[in-house]
């Protein structure tokens, strides 16, 4: 009887010990899980906060330093050695010219390529090659575009250093963007529209003209906005193709003459001439334009989404 009692006690004790060890282990695991959880949370919040802070800092710093240097006179005059004042009218005009010229050339090319891919192409190899090429193009750094643009457009095609050569270089750079956005919007045109048009006896070209093209307006507009943003921000590709002159020209004269866009002018003023006030003034303009373009892109996207639903 005694032995039995002892044994039971022993078992109870063992049980107790086992439970205790188990509980200790469990708390250890729970503690580990809790620290893991907490550290991940902290890392995520800190990273997101840092990213947000960076954006706020960049925008406010550039605007605070740049806006006091902005004036009407600064915007509508050209640099003068006589009064030793710097104006950025030529750079603004050059930027406008280069944006217009690039879009004018890249739109038909990009939209045409997208239409070929979604409407005409039946050979999978050609489609693959075109898509691969577009991906490759969007990965090539702008300095390489600048070099090849200089060799091909300025030297080989005899355009010299001019806004047009710069625009042609930008055309190649922006081709994938326009192509992709157009293609995406073409995919949302219902197949039944096309079938309906074919069923009524329309030829392929007629279908493309009357049914497909109106359906890709949203993609084209989005592509344009994205391209304008990219052109505004581009500098490395333009340095050797469009040059950095500050002359005021009309659109057609301007295209055949060299000229600096806003970004190139910023670079030259900041790095080569040490005119940081001017550089910040240009930077603040660019920053405001970037914000505007981003807003426009989101709004256009929302507007067309609503329309489609």
């Amino acid at each position: 009887m005694d032995i039995l009692l002892k044994k039971e006690q022993q078992i109870n004790e063992d049980d107790f010990m086992e439970k205790r060890v188990k509980r200790q282990l469990e708390t250890k695991v729970i503690r580990k899980r809790k620290t893991y959880e907490a550290s991940m949370k902290v890392l995520m919040l800190a990273s997101t906060f840092l990213t947000g802070l960076l954006v706020v800092f960049l925008i406010s710093y550039v605007l605070i330093k740049g806006i006091p240097n902005l004036s009407i006179e600064f915007l509508i005059t050209k640099p003068s050695y006589i009064t030793e004042k710097i104006g950025i009218l030529p750079d603004i005009l050059n930027t406008v010219y280069i944006v217009l010229a690039t879009l004018f050339i890249v739109l038909p090319l990009g939209v045409g390529a997208a239409i070929y891919l979604t409407e005409y192409a039946s050979n999978k190899k050609i489609v693959g090659a075109i898509e691969y090429a577009a991906e490759t193009l969007s990965g090539i750094p702008s300095i390489i575009y600048g070099l090849v643009g200089m060799l091909f457009f300025c030297q080989f095609m005899g355009m010299k250093t001019s806004l047009l050569a710069g625009a042609m270089t930008l055309v190649i750079m922006n081709l994938p963007t326009i192509m992709r956005t157009t293609q995406e919007s073409l995919k949302t045109v219902p197949q039944s529209y096309r079938e309906g048009a074919f069923g009524l006896g329309a030829g392929k070209w007629r279908v493309v003209r009357t049914v497909v093209l109106p359906g890709c307006v949203d993609g084209v507009i989005t592509g344009c906005i994205l391209s304008v943003g990219r052109i505004l921000g581009e500098s490395a590709a333009l340095l050797f193709t469009a040059g950095f002159a500050h002359a005021v020209n009309g659109l057609l004269d301007g295209l055949s003459a060299p000229g600096a866009t806003l970004t190139v002018a910023l670079y030259v003023y900041a790095k080569e001439q040490g005119e940081f006030g001017v550089a910040f003034a240009i930077a603040s303009i660019l920053m405001m334009l970037t914000v505007l373009i981003n807003l426009a892109a989101t709004m256009v996207g929302k507007y067309f989404n609503k329309k489609k639903n």
């Binding site: 954006v55 960049l58 550039v62 943003g229 921000g233 500098s235 190139v264 900041a270 970037t290």
Partner: peptide, 9 residues
């Protein structure tokens, strides 16, 4: 926006 800021800025 961060993606859109020009590299010279």
């Amino acid at each position: 926006l961060l993606a859109g800021i020009p590299s010279v800025v």
